[in-house]
Computed example of a mutant assay.
Amino acid sequence: MRTVLRLGAAALAVAGVAAFSGPVAHAAPSSTNGTSGTSSSCSTWISGEWGHGRCYNSTPYTRTMHLHVECNAFYDPNVDRDVSVPAYSTVEAQGHCWSSVDWVTATI
């Protein structure tokens, strides 16, 4: 029983680190390597109560962009959105918070 609890705690710690990786709204655009050796990139920004993300897919196949908008107020639900990004194209997505936006991530 103790071994299971230790493994569960370790898995949660690793998942917590993975959940906070990715580009942040006030950071420079980041790149993630595609499987074909090319790179795809995403950028994010905050405009008032809106969180925005833009991703470019530089691969020859459709990929999925994931946008996460973290809202500041505890009563305000966070926004998670998945958008298909066709080959060699750019897609923009946005999410709205009622009060204000804490941070935004966009990954492809």
Rank of each mutant, 00 (worst) to 15 (best):
residue 57 N to P: 09
residue 22 G to S: 11
residue 70 E to G: 01
residue 80 D to V: 02
residue 63 R to M: 13
residue 25 A to G: 04
residue 40 S to H: 12
residue 51 G to Y: 10
residue 15 A to L: 15
residue 40 S to W: 00
residue 105 T to H: 12
residue 39 S to G: 11
residue 44 T to W: 03
residue 45 W to L: 01
residue 64 T to V: 10
residue 9 A to S: 07
residue 97 C to W: 13
residue 12 L to P: 06
residue 76 D to A: 07
residue 4 V to F: 06
residue 99 S to A: 09
residue 106 A to R: 01
residue 36 S to L: 06
residue 79 V to P: 12
residue 27 A to Q: 13
residue 75 Y to L: 08
residue 49 E to V: 08
residue 21 S to Q: 15
residue 73 A to M: 00
residue 57 N to D: 11
residue 107 T to L: 06
residue 11 A to P: 04
residue 36 S to I: 12
residue 44 T to P: 01
residue 5 L to S: 03
residue 108 I to V: 13
residue 93 A to H: 10
residue 105 T to E: 10
residue 6 R to D: 13
residue 60 P to L: 12
residue 23 P to Y: 02
residue 105 T to Y: 07
residue 54 R to C: 02
residue 91 V to G: 01
residue 58 S to H: 06
residue 14 V to P: 11
residue 47 S to T: 05
residue 34 G to T: 15
residue 80 D to I: 00
residue 100 S to M: 08
residue 75 Y to V: 00
residue 69 V to T: 05
residue 17 V to F: 10
residue 80 D to W: 03
residue 95 G to N: 05
residue 15 A to W: 08
residue 99 S to R: 09
residue 2 R to Y: 09
residue 107 T to A: 04
residue 62 T to A: 14
residue 71 C to P: 12
residue 76 D to P: 00
residue 56 Y to P: 00
residue 17 V to C: 04
residue 67 L to S: 04
residue 12 L to H: 08
residue 65 M to I: 05
residue 88 Y to V: 05
residue 55 C to S: 01
residue 92 E to M: 13
residue 30 S to C: 02
residue 98 W to I: 07
residue 76 D to T: 01
residue 60 P to G: 08
residue 31 S to C: 09
residue 56 Y to N: 06
residue 26 H to G: 12
residue 24 V to S: 12
residue 50 W to P: 00
residue 33 N to Q: 15
residue 50 W to S: 06
residue 78 N to E: 12
residue 66 H to G: 05
residue 98 W to K: 10
residue 68 H to G: 02
residue 16 G to L: 04
